[in-house]
Amino acid sequence: MNTLKLASWNINSVRFRLGIVEQFLNQESPDILCLQETKVEDGLFPAAAFHALGYHHVLLNGQRMHHGVAIVSKLPLIEEERNDWQANGEARHLGVRLPNGVRLENVYIPAGGDIPNRDLNPKFGQKLDFLARMTAWSEGVRVPTVMVGDFNVAPLECDVWSHKQLLDVVSHTPIEVETLGRLQAAHDWVDLGRRFVAPPERCFTWWSYRAKDWAASDRGRRLDHMWASPELARHATAHAVHEPCRSWLKPSDHVPLVTEFAF
């Protein structure tokens, strides 16, 4: 295993959008694809479609109609783990070890509702608590690890279309940014997206379905991330945000990220 091409995508229902997932895999051929918001129980996951494309290793943490994460891989996956950082049984994490010893953590952090106040909106409190549990876990990470997924936080001012207008909007509020910062500091995680696309360069991964023309309005946010342990980040050779996927047939509101590593 001298190289690794790793992809991550919040697909917003893998069965409904299976066609564009297959299109993406045929086009990019990553070694591993991490999916979030699969919205399907494990027994109904369309594993056969992935097997047909050479992804014979499929690990799942699914849930009926909501949430759910999956890892499909051409490489063997071992030592699987499912952490309940939501503390309520929701399917939001799946971790594995790769053949070279690297840990891969696929996570779907809660969106947090519409009101950025835990007293008025319990979902917002759950989001902050989820991040706090991840922070405590990060402090104990001792092996080279890459963590990917929909973090539902756009941390930098240039990670949203308007910093000023989104300061009070969930995903870009100061308390979320500060909380995500503590998570990043807990393991000195390297934000691979911003390593390769340096601020203040535009780098969005999500555009709302509400816009009639998402590309023309371009009111995007960088909600999807790939973070790596410092020693592993040095092996990253390329990173891409596949923005054209947002215009494909029956698109997700998120687009895939791909990072390449050389060992």
Rank of each mutant, 00 (worst) to 15 (best):
Q184F: 02
G19L: 15
W189R: 06
G68S: 05
G220V: 10
K164M: 11
N2I: 04
V96Y: 05
H51F: 14
N26Y: 06
L94E: 01
F45K: 04
T38Y: 09
S252D: 12
V153G: 02
L183Q: 01
F196P: 00
A87N: 08
I78W: 12
H57Q: 10
R133E: 08
V169S: 07
K5D: 08
H51L: 11
E157G: 02
K123A: 01
E231N: 11
R97W: 02
F151R: 02
L167Y: 08
P116W: 13
R246L: 12
L75R: 09
D168T: 07
D159F: 00
H235R: 06
E81T: 11
N106G: 12
H163T: 03
R64S: 12
G89V: 04
G193P: 03
E178F: 13
V72N: 00
A240Q: 13
A198E: 13
K123E: 06
G19S: 14
W207H: 01
K164D: 08
H254Q: 12
G43Y: 12
D159G: 04
T237Y: 09
T173M: 07
K164R: 07
W85M: 08
V255S: 01
P199I: 10
G43M: 14
W206R: 14
I20P: 02
D150Y: 03
L104S: 11
D129V: 05
A185G: 13
L44N: 12
A240G: 13
L131R: 00
A48I: 14
R194E: 10
L60Q: 07
P110S: 03
E81C: 05
W227L: 09
G220R: 09
I11M: 08
S13K: 05
L6Q: 05
W137T: 01
D213N: 11
L4E: 02
E105G: 10
R82T: 12
A198C: 08
A70H: 00
V107C: 03
T237N: 09
A87E: 06
A91R: 05
V146T: 08
